[in-house]
Computed example of a mutant assay.
Amino acid sequence: MLQQPIFEDEPSSQIWLQGSSLEADSNILVSLTSAGEVRSVFISNQGVQEIVAAQLVDAAPEPQGVATQQKYVRVKKVMSFSGYALAISLMVFAGLSFTGNVKARIVLTGSMAPAISTGDVIVTMPITRKAPQVDDVIAYQAKRFNGENVAVFSHRIIGGDIENGFIVKGDANKSPDPQKPKADDILGVVFFVIPFIGNLLTPKALFLLVPSFFGIWLILDAMRNVE
């Protein structure tokens, strides 16, 4: 007869086991309920140990394919949310662009690195809505000395004023631009930069992206149909 307290904090709780000893692989789980509280002990040839009974209960295995289906559902939700967010953003941007409130341009050189890199997209606002100031980055129409248009530059204002012309300079350039853009030359003030996305809008990148998106769609469709 083996007599031993069940719980160390309650010496009066006793357990009796009939027999001289337990087999080497014998295990007993005892659960007691009192006033809505459940306490359990695990009895083995190593002694008595209080445990949480749920720790010894194995969860039922998931049916084959359930985990894959759940992953697909999560991926689908993320992609759906991303798609809706992108669609709404494009609609808002299209509306603002149509009204002339904002314009987007792809940066083709690294003259403004590291603040703005090649392939970034800058979003500008007309000077009628945002007055250019020193330290702002502006997009302006660069011209030759004979007045012929050359290209659109996006450089930072480091001095001057809108009446006499701003002194502008690329952050990565050693000297200011020879032209001092005035109000008629300024196409907008940069207020937002989208990194890298311009690299995906070239014909070569689009040629690679379209098949990639189609491939992703096929993979997701295959995951959805897993039995």
Score class of each variant (00 low, 15 high):
S97T: 15
A113W: 10
T124N: 03
V102N: 06
M125D: 05
F93W: 11
D135Y: 10
F93S: 15
N164D: 11
V134R: 11
T109W: 04
G160C: 03
K103Y: 05
G83D: 04
E163W: 00
G160S: 06
V121N: 04
G159R: 05
Q133F: 08
G83V: 00
G83M: 00
R129L: 15
L86R: 08
N146E: 08
A151G: 00
A104P: 04
E163V: 05
A151P: 00
S89F: 07
F145A: 14
I106T: 13
T118K: 13
G119V: 01
I88K: 04
S111A: 07
G110N: 12
L108R: 12
V152N: 05
K103Q: 12
L90N: 15
I88G: 11
P132F: 03
V107Q: 03
E148F: 07
N164G: 10
A87K: 00
I158H: 05
I106E: 06
G159N: 02
I122H: 01
E148K: 09
F145E: 14
M79R: 08
D161Y: 07
V92H: 09
I162N: 07
N101G: 09
G147H: 02
F98K: 15
M112D: 03
M125A: 11
A94W: 14
F81P: 00
A113F: 09
Q141C: 05
A139E: 13
P126S: 09
K143G: 01
G160Y: 10
S97E: 15
V107D: 11
G159Q: 01
Y84W: 06
Y84E: 11
K77D: 07
I158S: 02
H155E: 01
I116G: 05
G100C: 11
T128D: 15
S80D: 13
R144A: 08
A85G: 09
F98D: 15
G147C: 02
E148P: 00
N146C: 02
Q141L: 08
M79G: 07
V137H: 05
I127F: 06
K130I: 08
T99Y: 13
P126L: 11
A94N: 14
N164Y: 04
S97V: 12
F98N: 15
S89G: 11
S89K: 04
G95D: 06
A87I: 02
V78N: 14
T99P: 08
V150Q: 07
N101E: 13
R156Q: 08
S111L: 03
K130A: 10
F81S: 10
N149P: 07
D120P: 01
E163P: 00
R129V: 11
T128C: 00
S117R: 13
V102S: 09
G119D: 06
K103F: 11
G100L: 12
G147A: 02
F153D: 00
M79N: 06
V152K: 07
K103M: 09
G119A: 04
K130W: 12
I162Q: 07
L108V: 10
F153H: 04
K143Y: 09
Y140V: 02
